[in-house]
Design a protein around this nucleic acid. Structure first.
Length: 116
RNA sequence: UGAGUAGACCGGAUGGUCGCGGACGAAGUGCUGAAAAGCCUCGUACGAGGAAAGUCCGGGCUCCAUAGGGCAAAGGUGCCGGAUAACAUCCGGUGAAGGCGACUUUAAGGAAAGUGCAACAGAAAUAAACCGCCAGGUUGAAGUUAGGGGUAAGAAUUGAGAAGUCUCUUACUUCUUACUUCUCACCUCCAACUUCCAAUCUGGUAAGGAUGGAAAGGUGAGGUAAGAGCUCACCGGCCCGACGGCAACGAAGGGUGCUAUGUAAACCCCACCUGGAGCAACACCGUGAUAAGAAACAUUAGGGUUGCCCGCCCGUUUCUUAGAGGUGGCUAAAGCCUGGUAGCAAUACCAGGCGUAGAUAGAUGACCAUUCAAGACAGAACCCGGCUUACAGGUCUGCUCAUUUU
RNA sequence: UGCGGAUUGGUGUAACGGUAGCACGACUGACUCUGGAUCAGUUUGUUAGGGUUCAAAUCCUUAAUCCGCAG
């Protein structure tokens, strides 16, 4: 995931929160909004509710790792924000990946082929 | 062998595939650009901690103020010596407390400069005199002794008188009176003395008195009217103190019967220290993204509000206000490792070597295999020195105590 | 990142270093045919650890949680 594909400014995040669709599960919340370009930009936030810095970093890395695999399959032209809700001790890549794919499919961002 | 105590160290390892960060190098007329350079691609080595944490202290660095120093305020520190750039840190020592011991803990100046506070309880709280104990006076009560007076009764003796018995006398008996002696009861007066008696006054005393954190040295003996350092012995205290130590302080010895509670982490006094703000500081380049408010226009359409309704939100242009963004600061530093010298040590000096993350929404992850003790606490954000707090487990060393054997 | 403040029963709040109080709750009983109201009673405590003090909610210190302000 290269740098210029990530959301940076607080304003962009606020736009997505205000005007976008969302879908939630027990671990994650995904927001999305059309941005009228050909690239998809992704932002990840982990609030302090998740835990201390080690837990927050762990959740962010797991989400990143999953996004790295799914990035090419996503429909283009969206701003996506992924929020981590809570961290479980035994959350690993598989569980996060399942939920992420389910949520993206729900928002029509993912083709039906890779649905699980 | 067991129990304990002090210190040092480690904080999963190895290999493979994919991925991330900055650095260095290389190639390509691939893209942008006038160029420098940047992006893209490939390769190389490197890439979180003992606490990176909390932000509790101290500094470097930057800006502001002063451009000379002092005072006050406010805050801090507080046994002594040393180390250090500095410190509330560290090292060594002193005193005190705890432990059989190794050892541990210690904000440890001043209470005779002053002010304040000490609830409740208790007789009394910083000062004695409520009870008690003792002595003396007064009064009362009781008792004892001695004396005086009165009333009533009895016994004995003596004297006198009268009567009776008897022929008379003597003698005997009875009665009355007086005196003496004895016994007993009651009343009264006066004196003296006594009291496991009571009241009150004066004085002595600090032994004893349910309390309290604290009651003004403790224990024992003598002493005393009762008591008391009143005296003595031991212990404790205070003062002086040869001598030792740079100092805190220790201390042989001598003197003194000893009047002075605690609290300064209450105010305070004394000594010393501190100008303020912080890398989101600051410097440079720079632009028209964005936000807020006002006015005008358009529309009741569409979208969002996770299924429906109500309600709410979302547009364009102009003006005003704010100033976004990027680069540097940014890692070579009071640095780390090894050895030597000085020092008990903290540490200092010398020599050699290494010079080791630098992100900017924030880089360390995923999967597989092997192995073991099955991996805790936890993620750099300008940088150092400390402190504090969290932490699975493991390794090593010194010392102490107990038991067993020799 | 820096600065400041707070923490007392279930809730809101008092308390000079000296017995932790008040109101609303909750529970129990009485009254009532029953409930409400009323009356009587009970329960629940200083964020945590250490220190100073004879004695800490209060003073000092270390930690935890929460809130606010600046940029």
């Amino acid at each position: 995931m290269k740098k210029h594909y990530t959301l940076v400014n607080n304003k962009e995040f606020q736009k997505v929160y205000k005007r976008g669709k969302y879908a939630a599960s027990s671990f994650l919340v995904v927001y999305c909004l059309k941005n009228n370009t050909e690239t998809t930009k992704i932002g990840i936030t982990t609030s302090k509710k998740v835990g201390k810095s080690v837990k927050r970093n762990r959740m962010r890395r797991l989400i990143k790792e999953n996004i790295r695999e799914l990035y090419d399959k996503l429909n283009k032209g969206f701003n996506i924000v992924i929020v981590a809700r809570k961290s479980e001790k035994y959350a690993n890549k598989e569980i996060i990946g399942k939920e992420l794919r389910y949520l993206l499919y729900k928002l029509d961002l993912l083709d039906g082929e890779s649905k699980c």
